[in-house]
């Protein structure tokens, strides 16, 4: 086995795609997002097909409040920007900046998730249980799957940040941070459709 020779390596302009592994990861992850598109489309379609099936339960008009959704949207949009800043810092070779902006992203993600949990609790109190109606089930499934993605993203990025807190930018971790940030943007993309299709079209 080749001993690790610690010799200086200079920063390539795309550290995330500088190795074959990095290139593979990049491409594979994008393809995965292509698949996720269909996954969320199936959930959106189910929701849209069932959103009038409220049975005796509350309707979306009874429940949705735009102010909360607006705040959540702004938080998630901003978290997208912070992760963009993180990537710019990575390409600049500024490891500190990368770490700080990534933590900011995680923080904003956690705030978003907190609001979402609060929102669900309010709805349940109002009488919209998971099993109340087809509308309820499909709403919680769609928005909950998105929330699950946010949670996974938070855990994933935190793991990376802790694992590499002192490592500097390397050819191994640059692709990892990069695909994590792609994942985060994708979460935002899905949210854009959720706030439009579920909330704005539901009030």
């Amino acid at each position: 086995m080749a001993e690790a020779v610690k010799h200086e390596q200079t920063l390539p302009s795309h550290p995330e795609k500088a190795t074959l592994e990095g290139k593979n990861k990049f491409l594979g992850f994008w393809f995965f997002l292509g698949g996720e598109t269909v996954l969320f489309a199936s959930l959106f379609g189910t929701y849209l097909g069932l959103r009038n099936g409220v049975a005796d339960g509350p309707t979306s008009q009874d429940l949705f409040h735009l102010d909360l959704v607006f705040i959540m949207t702004m938080i998630l949009l901003t978290s997208s920007l912070t992760s963009v800043f993180a990537m710019i810092n990575m390409k600049k070779g500024n490891f500190k900046g990368l770490i700080i902006w990534m933590w900011a992203t995680v923080f904003l993600g956690a705030c978003f998730l907190g609001f979402e949990i609060y929102e669900f609790i309010v709805y349940v109190d109002y009488g919209l249980g998971f099993t109340t109606s087809a509308f309820a089930s499909s709403f919680y499934t769609l928005v909950g799957t998105h929330g699950g993605h946010v949670l996974f993203g938070i855990l994933w990025i935190s793991t990376l940040l802790i694992r590499y807190r002192k490592a500097g930018i390397t050819l191994t971790n640059a692709p990892k941070f990069y695909v994590a940030s792609l994942y985060w943007h994708f979460i935002d993309v899905v949210w854009v459709f959720i706030f439009t299709v579920v909330y704005l079209m539901g009030v």
């Binding site: 690790a4 610690k6 390596q9 920063l11 490592a167 390397t170 050819l171």
Partner: peptide, 16 residues
């Protein structure tokens, strides 16, 4: 020891 093996966990140095 092959010198052409780059170490994938060495911090990248320098500026763009």
């Amino acid at each position: 020891m092959d010198p052409h093996v780059t170490d994938p966990s060495a911090p990248l140095k320098g500026k763009p």
